[in-house]
Simulated scan of single mutants.
Amino acid sequence: MTAISDAPVTAHPRRRAALGWIALAVGLLLIGLVGTTLVYGGWKEKGLLDPESPAPDGARALVRILEQQGVTVTVARDRATAERALAGSDATLVMRDAPMLSDATLSSLAERARDVVLVEPRSRALDVLMNGSALGGFAADRAADPGCDLPAPEAAGTARTGELMVPGQGVDGCYRVDGDFGLLSWETSDGRTVTALDGTSTMTNAALPLDGNAALAIGTLARTGTVVWYVPSPSDADAGTAPQTLGDLTPPWVTPAILLLFLSGLVAAIWRGRRFGPLVTERLPVMVRANETTEGRARLYAAAGDAPHALDELRRAARGRLVRVMGLATHTPPEQVADAVAERLGADRGAMRGILITDTPTTDRDLVAASDRLRDLETSVRAALSTERTTR
């Protein structure tokens, strides 16, 4: 007979329940954070060409150099601040792409400045502010010669290009690569100058020391004594021009459905959370006969058509019984058990080893015959031992 029962419970139920609730709370917090991000907009890239960022993709080094050259740099992080800084002064407006501004607002802001430098040119801004210019290819930060007679590129010499552009009518191009240009410059009818170049390849803290990037950046931005560096903010958006979020693009029923699913999951988690901890805390008084386990395994092997494994299971059980009957050590090797049986019965050792170890059945008929031999062998051993006890 073999007794099967559960192990004593050692974990503290209260501690396990508390850990379960903490894990549930953290999971719900993460789900809410991800859901909010997906519905109301994705992560925003920060620090790229930021004039106050010391990161490799920031532009603080260029700002410090301009200030050492006597140029006043004003950082405007919203449109109102930029407009106030540009009012009443001949300043250079430096700006990244501002998709939240309408064409009219973009033109109005540019007209307030003496010069405009687009450091993250996009097709819309190029078309609106540079007489129909557009984006071209990309030169993978390849160095190029200016190839033009504009003052800043001519003084800088070789510089990095990055984003390439196609000039509009009357727009000058420098740093020609594969038919496109890495820098565009256009003088408007009222005497203003609009320049476009890929600032990520020339003006960042990491790119500034390369080739003639520093000279090109300083020569482009320092043409006036004042620089207004405009960092667009989502709050600057004109009515109806803000970029659509995922929530704007989905049908109206999607958000309520997501909230309903979230609440359903929360209710289900609270309901199932009551079952945290061990399911069974008491010992189970279950008793299973050892031969039932052996016979069950043998039936499974037989049902699977695996006669060798089924016979191995029967042999293992038979050898265990013979060991107990003959008084051998529990961990006696199978070969020694077979030799002891042969000696007890006066039989051939090879035949005994074949019955108890080596014979391999190939069919169910062979398995039945081998099982019968095992049973007869056990019966013979028990009879021999009984005779010995009687004669004594």
Rank of each mutant, 00 (worst) to 15 (best):
I4A: 14
E163C: 02
L367S: 09
P99E: 06
D180M: 08
E52R: 09
T200E: 14
L93F: 04
A61H: 08
L311Y: 02
D306I: 15
L49D: 10
T363Q: 09
R14P: 06
D90H: 10
Q244E: 12
P361M: 03
D6L: 15
G182P: 05
C174F: 12
D78S: 01
D359F: 05
G273L: 08
R316A: 10
Y40R: 14
S5G: 14
A82L: 04
R84L: 06
P308V: 05
G265D: 07
T158N: 10
L216N: 05
E67R: 08
R299A: 13
A104E: 15
P56C: 07
A318N: 03
V128A: 01
W21P: 09
R112N: 08
T390W: 01
L261A: 15
L62R: 01
T224K: 09
C174I: 11
R389H: 03
T10Q: 14
F138Y: 09
V288H: 03
S53F: 02
G147R: 04
G219K: 09
V254S: 10
G137I: 03
E313P: 01
G327L: 01
P252M: 04
D198I: 03
L33Y: 13
R272Q: 15
A196I: 10
L300M: 12
V231L: 14
G305V: 12
S133M: 05
L66Y: 03
R274I: 00
A85S: 14
P153T: 02
A113L: 08
R176Q: 15
W229D: 09
D359M: 02
A347S: 15
T37C: 11
R274A: 11
A155I: 06
G191L: 08
T81R: 12
E378G: 06
P8M: 08
D372L: 00
V71F: 01
S123C: 02
R84A: 13
L367Y: 12
A217K: 04
I4Q: 13
R64S: 14
R316W: 01
L197A: 13
L150A: 09
L118Q: 06
V337M: 04
R297C: 09
A196S: 07
G265E: 08
V280A: 08
D376E: 13
I258S: 11
L208G: 05
R275Y: 11
G35W: 05
V119K: 01
V166I: 13
G162M: 04
K46H: 13
D97G: 12
L385F: 00
G179R: 00
V381G: 02
A329K: 05
F276H: 15
T72I: 07
D372N: 11
D178P: 07
L246M: 12
A91E: 12
